[in-house]
Amino acid sequence: MTLPQLQELKEIEDKARRDLAAAPNEPAFESWRITYLGRRSRLNAILRGLASLPLEERRQVGAAANRLKSELEELLSQRQVQLHEAAVTAVVEKGRLDVTLPGRPLAIGRLHPVTQVLRDILAAFVSMGFQVFEGPEVEWDYYNFEAVRIPKDHPARDMWDTLWIDYERNGEYPMLLRTHTSPMQIRVMEQMQPPVRIVSPGKCYRHEATDPTHEWMHTQVEGLAVDEDISMADLKGTLYEFARRLFGRERRVRFRCDYFPFVEPGADMSIDCPMCKGEGCRSCGDSGWIEILGAGMVHPEVLANVGYDAERYTGFAFGLGVERVAMLRHGIEDIRLFYANDLRFLQQF
C-alpha cells in the first residue's frame, strides 16, 4: 500500500511541472518558487512532518521528499536558463545592425604633411641625443654667409639666391631671409660651449622661380654636433642611422664628396631610390640614388669664428630639405602642392 504522503508528493510534482512550464517570466518563477519550494509550501509541510512518522515511513517519505525538492530546484534553474537564452535570442534577432554603416563622423584634423615628416625627422635625431633649437628666419648677412665662410663676392654665393630685406646700411643690404639653416650653427655655438648636439628646423627662402622641384619657401633641418673627438665616422654613423630610421632598415646609404664652404671634408648622403630600388628611374635621374642631405666636418675657421678652439674640438654638421623627404616618402611629384594648401591634398596624409 502506498503511503498517502508519497501520493501527495506525486501530485505536487505533477502540478509543479505543469505550473513551471506555464510560467512566462522571472516574477512568475518567484511565485512558483514560493508555492512549491517556500516555507509554506506543501512540500515543506511534508518535510517538517517527517519527524512524527514511524522510522520506516520517515525513511521512505523523507527520501522521496528530498529528491523532489532537489528535482524542483533543478527544474527551476533549467527553466530560468532556458528563458534567458530565449530572451537573448529574441534580442539578437530583433536588434541586428548593419555593422558596415559608417560610424558617426568625428571631425578629423590633420597636421600638414611637412609638419608630420619634420616631426619624424626630429624624433629620429632626438632619440640620438640631439636637442631641437630654432632660430630666426630673418637673418644678418653675417650669420647666413660671412660666418659660414661665404664672404661677399664669393662665387659660392651663387649656390644660394637670396631675398634681401629692404634695409640699407653703408650702401649694402645687411639683412636677408635666411637661405639655409646653417646660420644656426653659429648662433648655437655662440650660445653654448661643447659638447653641442642640436637639430634646428625652420623655414628658409630662395630667390628662385617655382617649378615641380623648386619652391622659394622651404623647410630645412640643420644638425650640429661638436665635441672633443668627433670624426667623419661619427657623421656617417649618425646619418646612416637616421636614414634607416626614416626610410627603413633595408635602405642602402651612400656618402660622396661634395662641397659646402662651411665644412671640410664635405659630403652628401644619398639613399637608394625607393621608387626603383636602385635600378634607375625617372625619380632618381637614372642614377639609382637620391641625394637627401649635405653634410661635412665643421670647417675649423667656422669653429674659430665663434671662438671655439679648433685644435681641440671637431664636429659635423648637416642640412636636409624636409619637403624633399616628404616627397620621397609619399610619392609626391610637385613640391608646390605643399604650400598651395588644397584640402584635397592635405587631407590625404
Binding site: 648636439r197 668627433i230 661619427d234 656617417k236 654613423g237 656618402f255
Partner: peptide, 11 residues
C-alpha cells in the same frame, strides 16, 4: 671610412 655612433656627453 668607418661608421661609428656618437659617444661622449649629452649636452
Amino acid at each position: 671610412l668607418p661608421t661609428t655612433a656618437l659617444s661622449g656627453g649629452i649636452p
